[in-house]
Design a protein around this nucleic acid. Structure first.
Lengths: 314, 314
DNA sequence: CCTGGCACG
DNA sequence: CGTGACAGG
C-alpha cells in the first residue's frame, strides 16, 4: 500500500461456468414458462479512498475455503496473489496443522501465519490468519473452554486495531445445534465487546447468518427453517451491531440486493445466484472514518463461498 | 462370432501413462545406480483358433472394475464395446442394484444381466455377469449361507458349460481374514466340483491369489506376508487344479513372466509393472480342446485391475 | 453437490 | 492411491 487501481474484478482461480441459464423452459404440464432472469450482483469498482479522500492503506481478505486442500488444488492461491491483501483470513480449512498444503505454508507474502484447528474432529471447521506484518499478539479462541475446541477464532492484535477471524458454528440440519449457536453468539459477543474496550476491531469471516431479507435470495422459504436465517440467529447479529459495531457492506450499500457470498453446491445455485450473504466485515464504529470499501468478489471460484475484501485507510 | 482378427491390443478406455521410467537414477548417497528397466509384458496377438484349427466362437471377458460407477466414468465401456465379448464378468462393482449406472443397465449388447451385491455393507464387493445369450439358468452364491452374503459369485448355465463369475475374499491387511478365506476356498472348491460333475465349467474372476512366484513381481518380499501370496492361499489354488481344473493362461504360457492383472494404485506400481496375476480363467479339463487363447489386456485402464479375455471354440 | 474423515483393498 | 459410505454444510 498505496495500491494501483485494479482494472476490474476478475476470476482467476477457476473459470466461472460458461453456460448460462437456459433462456426458456417448458413446464412438465405443457405450459410454456417465462424465462426467469437470474438476479445478478455486479460488485462496483474498488473504492480506494475514504469518503473524505484518505487513501486505503490496509487490505483484508476473508474467504471460507471449504477445505483448504481442495481449495489450493483449484488454484485459489493464484487469485490470492493477485488480490494481494495485507491480512488473509480463511475459514473452514478442515485440515490438521500437520496436513496443511505446502503451497500455503510456503507463501513468502505472508511471513506470519496462524492456525486454529478442531481438537477432536479431524477435518472439521478450522480457521487461519495470515499476515504480512507481524502482529503484536495473537490469541486462539474466545477464552471460553466449551467454545474453543473447534478452531473457530483467531485474534491478531496490531498497533491500532484487532483483527478477529471467525467461523461461527452452523446451526445444523434440522437446527439441531441452534441452542448451542445461541450460547456461542452470546459468549462471542461478550468477547468482542471486551476486546473493543481495549482497541477498535475488525471482525471478519463466515458468521453463518443472513441478517436481513435482502441478504439472501429466498427469505420467505428459509425463514426459521434453514440454519442461518432463523430469528434467533438474526437477532444475535442485531445485538452485535447494537454493541457498537457496523456491518460494513450494508453500511456502504444499504439497499443493494443480491450481494451474496455463499451458494450451496446443490441445484446449480451459484449459476442462478440463489445465494446468501454469510461473510462479513463487522467494524467497531470507531473505524468507520477509515472505511474505504467492502468488496464482494462473487465471480472468484474455489469454494462454495466467494472471498470478500475490506479496504481501510489506517 | 466368428470374428475378424484385431490388429493389436489397444487401450481405448483411458490412455496409458505416457512418461516411462527415468532412464537413470542417482542414489542419495551419491553412487550412480544402474537404470532399472521395468519388466514389461507384451500380450501376443489373439489366437483365434484351437491348437487343431477350430475357430473361436465364444469370448468371455472378466474385469475387476474397482467400483462400477467410477469405472463407467472413466469410459471403460468404450473398451468393452470394442472387445465385444459374449459374456462379461465384473467384480468389485461396489454398488447397490438401485444405484447401478444407467450406461451399464442400458447396454443392448447384453440383454441378459445379473447382479450380486453385498447384503450388509453397501458399496462392498459385488459381481455382475452380462451375457448376449440367455442362460438356461442363473444362480447367486455357492449355496452356503455364511459365504453368500457378500455378492461374490454368479453362475450362469448354458447348454454345454457353466460360467462362474467370482470375486474371492481378500485375506485383509495383517491377514486378519485368512482363516475365513481358507474356509471360503474349501467351500468354493466343493461348489465347483459339484458343478463340474454336471457339466464342464469356466471359472473367471479375481481369485485374489498369485499362484506361483512367476505370478507376481516381488515374490520374496510378499511371501506369507501380503494377502494373495500366503502359502495357504496358494495351496488352495493348487487344490483346485488337482480337482480337474486348469489355469488357462499358465497352461498356454507356462513360462511367461510379468503377465500381471493387478497393480496397487500406490507407488506408481503399474507404470513400473510391479504387479500380480490375480485374475484367472480356470477351466474344466474337458474344455481344454476348445481353448484358443487367454488374453491379458494389460494396457487397458479403468481400474487397478486390467481385463482378461478367454477365447473358446465351443 | 462438494469437502473432509474412515474402511477396504 | 483410489473406491465407496457417511457426516457435515
Amino acid at each position: 500500500m498505496p495500491r494501483r487501481a485494479k482494472k476490474e474484478q476478475e476470476a482467476t482461480a477457476v473459470e466461472a461456468p460458461s453456460d448460462d441459464e437456459p433462456k426458456a423452459k417448458r413446464g412438465k404440464k405443457g405450459g410454456a414458462k417465462p424465462a426467469e432472469e437470474p438476479a445478478l450482483y455486479k460488485d462496483p469498482q474498488d473504492k480506494l479512498e475514504t469518503a473524505d479522500g484518505k487513501p486505503a492503506t490496509l487490505k483484508i481478505t476473508s474467504w471460507n475455503v471449504d477445505g483448504i486442500r481442495a481449495w489450493v488444488k483449484k488454484n485459489a492461491l493464484e487469485w490470492v496473489r493477485e488480490e494481494d491483501p495485507d491480512v488473509l483470513c480463511l475459514q473452514e480449512t478442515k485440515c490438521a496443522e500437520k496436513s496443511l498444503p505446502a503451497e500455503v505454508l510456503d507463501m513468502p507474502e505472508f511471513p506470519h501465519k496462524f492456525w486454529a484447528c478442531s481438537d477432536d474432529k479431524e477435518g472439521y471447521s478450522g480457521v487461519a490468519l495470515l499476515s504480512k506484518k507481524k502482529p503484536i499478539n495473537v490469541t486462539i479462541g474466545i477464552g471460553v473452554e466449551e467454545h474453543d475446541k473447534e478452531g473457530r477464532v483467531i485474534t491478531a492484535e496490531f498497533d491500532d486495531f484487532f483483527v478477529v477471524a471467525a467461523y461461527v458454528p452452523n446451526s445444523g440440519r434440522g437446527l439441531v445445534r441452534l441452542d448451542y449457536r445461541e450460547t456461542w453468539d452470546i459468549a462471542f459477543r461478550t468477547f468482542l465487546k471486551e476486546l473493543q474496550d481495549r482497541k477498535p476491531l475488525v471482525l471478519c469471516g463466515d458468521l453463518n447468518v443472513a441478517h436481513q431479507e435482502i441478504d439472501l435470495k429466498n427469505p420467505k422459504t428459509n425463514k426459521n427453517k434453514t440454519p442461518g436465517f432463523t430469528q434467533r440467529e438474526r437477532d444475535g447479529f442485531t445485538e452485535l451491531l447494537k454493541a457498537g459495531f457496523v456491518d460494513s457492506f450494508r453500511h456502504l450499500y444499504p439497499e443493494v440486493p443480491y450481494a451474496y457470498t455463499f451458494w450451496t453446491y446443490m441445484m446449480n445455485a451459484r449459476a442462478k445466484n440463489v445465494g446468501w450473504r454469510l461473510d462479513y466485515f463487522v467494524l467497531s464504529e470507531a473505524l468507520l472514518p477509515k472505511l474505504c470499501d467492502n468488496k464482494v468478489r462473487s465471480k472468484v471460484m474455489g469454494s462454495d463461498h466467494c472471498p470478500i475484501t475490506l479496504l481501510l485507510a489506517m
